[in-house]
Simulated assay, not measured.
Amino acid sequence: MGFERSESALYLANQLAKGLSRALQKRASALGFSPGQFPVLLALWEEDGLTQRQLLDRLEVEQATLANTLSRMERDGLIARSPHPNDRRAQIIALTERGRELEALALDAAARADDEVFHGFRRFERELLKEYMRMAIANSRTTDKG
Rank of each mutant, 00 (worst) to 15 (best):
V117F: 03
N68M: 11
A67W: 11
F3G: 03
R89I: 04
Q37F: 04
M133H: 11
F124N: 13
D76W: 02
A113L: 00
W45R: 05
M73D: 02
S71I: 13
R123M: 15
R141I: 06
G36I: 05
S6Q: 06
G2M: 13
E101H: 13
Q91S: 13
R72V: 02
L42W: 10
A30S: 13
L16T: 07
A136W: 12
D115F: 12
A111D: 11
V40C: 01
L70Y: 01
A67N: 10
V61M: 01
K18Y: 09
A110N: 12
R123C: 09
G146M: 15
E60M: 11
D57H: 12
E47N: 11
A13S: 15
G120I: 01
L50Q: 11
L105H: 06
S34F: 05
R134C: 04
L44T: 03
E131M: 06
Q54I: 00
D48N: 12
A64H: 13
A9T: 15
S29R: 15
L41D: 01
P39N: 08
H119V: 06
E74Y: 00
H119C: 13
T51E: 02
A110S: 14
R88K: 14
R112T: 13
W45T: 03
R122Y: 08
A13M: 14
Y132R: 10
V117P: 00
L105I: 05
G49E: 05
K26A: 09
E103M: 05
R5H: 15
R27C: 02
S34K: 09
R88I: 08
W45K: 05
A110V: 13
Q25G: 04
A104H: 08
A90K: 12
R141N: 03
T96C: 06
A90Q: 10
R88N: 10
P85I: 11
G99N: 05
L105F: 07
L128K: 09
Q63L: 09
G49R: 01
T96H: 04
S8P: 08
R5M: 12
R53G: 04
L102V: 04
L78C: 07
S8D: 13
R134W: 11
K26L: 10
I93Y: 03
E97K: 11
L107T: 03
Q15N: 12
R22K: 15
G2I: 08
L56F: 00
R53S: 08
I92H: 09
E97C: 14
L78Y: 01
R134V: 08
E4G: 11
R126V: 14
A138G: 08
T96N: 06
T143G: 01
K26S: 13
A9Y: 15
D76M: 00
L56G: 00
A109N: 01
L66Y: 00
L107K: 08
L24N: 03
A23L: 07
A13N: 12
H84F: 06
R88W: 10
S21M: 14
R123P: 10
L107D: 00
D114E: 11
A9W: 15
A138R: 11
Y132W: 13
R58A: 00
E4S: 08
F118A: 01
T96G: 09
S71F: 12
I137S: 05
A28T: 04
T51I: 00
Y11N: 04
N139S: 15
L95G: 01
R112F: 12
L107P: 00
A94L: 09
R98E: 12
A80M: 14
R81D: 06
G146P: 06
G19Q: 12
A67V: 06
Q25E: 10
